[in-house]
Structures are given as structure tokens and as C-alpha cells.
Design a protein around this nucleic acid. Structure first.
Lengths: 138, 138
DNA sequence: CAGCATCCATCTAGATACTG
DNA sequence: CAGTATCTAGATGGATGCTG
């Protein structure tokens, strides 16, 4: 158990995740985190969670500023991890649907707290940034 | 005190975060997410949340395979966002402590769900990877 | 439409060397 | 100890052309 002093804020009572004990499990969890903690992964996950099944180009437009190359790559990686399912409809022109798997949906739920955190604390972050810039200037 | 509107469920199955409505807020939240959804940020955050205040080199050892350049950079970015506070003790040799701010602690809490998710689903991810590799081979 | 391939500019990460 | 400076290798983004 961690020996934190006070500061029990808004969310989550102390997070003692069970993996912290076993180093082997720790390592595994870490590699997962490393892959999941990615800007595009998170953004695509969010869009799919919010708007349901989407087509390739549709996702690109929804995310906004992602290159087609990164979109392809990230979707493949997400598919590889089992977060996303890819359905090809054999028609002309091609029609490919991407949707979240149960695993993907559950990850979306896990990230929910982070989105809420960002929404709630944006002004505090703004203040911190300004303060840091001021400190830097001196 | 933050003005949270509705959405009282911590890890809701469906995450309707309030920011999704206003495009201006959306954009702000997104830039925050983009900075926070970073491998090293997440890993450092976790170590500091678990072990409390640490020194520069100590964090490096705890995280394991981070270069000191990335350690410096990530700590600066986290400081800029107000997640981390940096305390310099004017002694020789130098002694610098890094600790989470309240904001940092709350973010750690928000990420708790993700760690739990990773710990819980590691075998499912392993299965998905194998299945994907098999599909690919054909 | 949904991609893969390629060239190129740039941004980032990592390794190494050096300093207050 | 806690960095900064520098160089290089790789990741990424954009533009463009091509295909089923």
C-alpha cells in the first residue's frame, strides 16, 4: 500500500492496482499501457465510443487532423490488440466498417475518468501554464 | 471547487462527458488529452503516485528504460501543466525533488481505471494478438 | 472508397559527452 | 546529482500516384 499523505481529491480513492505486486504482471501491464497511452488511439477510441461504428474516411474526418497513414496504422494496432473489429463489405466501391469490440468499449469506459478530468480541470491547467511561463521568463 | 455537471458515475459504461457538446471546450479538452495521453507521462505519474516525492535519478530508475532527455522533457511538460511540483534544494551536490500536485494526484486517480483495465484484460489482449497474427499470415 | 507505396520535410527519441 | 548540448536514427506528417 502506498503511503500517501492526505490529498484525497475528486476522483478515485487511492488506486492500488493489484498488478503492482507481481513484477511479471507489472511488466505485462506496462507494455499494454505503453501501447494504449497514445494520442491517436485515445482519440479514435473516443470517436468510436461516442458515434458507434464508422467507416475509414468517416473516422478520419471525425478525428480531424490525423494523416491517412497514421489512421491506417493506429486502426491496425487497435485491431491487433482486439480493441477494434474491422468488417469488409465486398462491394464496389469498397465499404469497411470499424467498430469497438467489447474490450474496446471497456477501455473506453476506463478512459472516461480521464476525459472528465480534462474537462473539469482545463482552467486550472491554463493557470498552471501561465504561471510556468512567467517563472520561466525570469 | 469545480462545477461538475451531472455525470456522477465514476467509471460509467457510457461516458457522456459534458465537453462533447461545446466545440470550443472540445478542442481544449483534446489538447489536454493529447498531452496527457503519453507513455512517459503516464508511467511517471504512476510512480510518483505510488511512491510519493522522488528525486530526478530515482524517478529514472523507477520508470526503468527512459532516457534522461525524455525524463527531463516529460517532467518539464508535467510541471508546465501543473501536475508536478519541482523543489530545488540549494546544496552540493544538487538535490531536486519532484512530487505530484493536487491536480497531478487527481489525474492519477482518473487513470486508475486504465491500469485496472490493463491488469484485468492482459490475457484477452494476448489472445487477440495471437488471433490477429494468425489472420495476417493467411 | 479504402487502402498501400513512395518521396520528402520535420519532429521526436535515444545515445553519448560534458558541466555547475 | 541533475541536468544541458549535440548528433544520429527513427517515427511521423504531407503530398501524390496507384489499385481493386
Amino acid at each position: 500500500m502506498s503511503d500517501r499523505t492526505a490529498t484525497e481529491s475528486l476522483f478515485a480513492p487511492t488506486c492500488d492496482h493489484p498488478a503492482a505486486e507481481d513484477p511479471a504482471v507489472e511488466a505485462l501491464v506496462r507494455t499494454i499501457i505503453e501501447q494504449v497511452a497514445d494520442k491517436w488511439t485515445l482519440l479514435i477510441l473516443e470517436e468510436l465510443a461516442e458515434r458507434g461504428t464508422m467507416r475509414f474516411t468517416e473516422i478520419g474526418r471525425a478525428v480531424g487532423d490525423i494523416s491517412q497513414k497514421m489512421l491506417t496504422k493506429t486502426l491496425r494496432d487497435m485491431e491487433r490488440m482486439g480493441l477494434v473489429s474491422r468488417t469488409v463489405h465486398p462491394v464496389v466501391p469498397p465499404h469497411v466498417d470499424y467498430g469497438l469490440t467489447d474490450l474496446g468499449v471497456s477501455l473506453g469506459g476506463a478512459f472516461c475518468g480521464v476525459w472528465l478530468w480534462a474537462a473539469e480541470n482545463r482552467d486550472r491547467i491554463e493557470v498552471a501554464r501561465t504561471a510556468f511561463a512567467a517563472r520561466e521568463k525570469r
